[in-house]
């Protein structure tokens, strides 16, 4: 997994609550059996004026001029600013894949849906929860100033504003460790193989019906 230590990036505002994963990446693109290439279809239904078809070249499609991702000033943005309950709905990991593929490295919101939140960490994408008033203030500042960037420092657990103000954030110790070092979660878990085997053996004796083969 890609490590995350510090990142400075242009902020893109997504001023809407309850953005669901169907909106982040519509279902027709879930037919892909790959992990990459979802970026051009990120927010497909909001971003383009026509219906997206898997596998098509998106460069010639009509763009929705009212959608921030299409504004010239937000090109090359890599920090997404969002509202409450971002990533609700379907568990599709294609949502963080699409965000990451498009170039986002961090998402700031007052709250995230649980499964999406977990999925982000597995893909080197850092979801940051900040208080609603703080997020609101960031929206104002982003709207108010072209080229508005934030610096996210995971080690320090701080977001730095252009004015130098530091905003602290919480992050789970396990996820922080994995992200900072780009660690593979499976390798980490397999270090506990002996414990898993011991548990499994005891379980097999106690609840043998859980181990009957399905045929």
């Amino acid at each position: 997994m890609k490590a995350f230590t510090q990142h400075e990036g242009l902020v893109v505002p997504m001023d809407r609550a309850n953005v669901d994963t169907d909106l982040i990446i519509p279902k027709q693109f879930l037919k892909s059996i790959k992990r990459s290439g979802f970026g051009p279809n990120l927010f497909d239904e909001l971003r383009y004026l026509d219906e997206g078809i898997p596998g098509q070249d998106c460069s010639g499609r009509p763009l929705n001029p009212d959608f921030p991702l299409n504004f010239p000033r937000y090109q090359d943005g890599s920090v997404l600013l969002a509202r409450e309950n971002f990533g609700c709905g379907s568990s599709r990991e294609h949502a963080p894949w699409a965000l990451e593929d498009h170039g986002f490295r961090a998402i700031i919101a007052p709250s995230f849906a649980d499964i999406f939140f977990n999925n982000c960490f597995k893909n080197g994408l850092l979801p940051i929860v900040l208080a609603e008033e703080v997020v609101h203030q960031l929206f104002e500042e982003t709207h108010g100033r072209e080229g508005y960037s934030l610096t996210v420092n995971l080690e320090q657990q701080q977001v730095r504003k252009p004015c130098g103000e530091l905003i602290p954030f919480e992050v789970d110790a396990f996820y922080k460790h994995c992200l900072l070092n780009g660690l593979d979660h499976i390798d980490l878990t397999l270090e506990h193989s002996d414990d898993i085997r011991a548990y499994e053996q005891a379980r097999r004796e106690k609840s043998p019906w859980l181990f009957d083969a399905v045929q």
Binding site: S91, N118, N119, K122, N123, I186, L188, T189, L190, I196
Partner: peptide
């Protein structure tokens, strides 16, 4: 669970 966790459970029988 997400797809990374699908792989994780297949490989380890556990979730963190």
């Amino acid at each position: 669970i997400g797809t990374s966790e699908v792989e994780h459970v297949m490989a380890t029988q556990c979730l963190t």
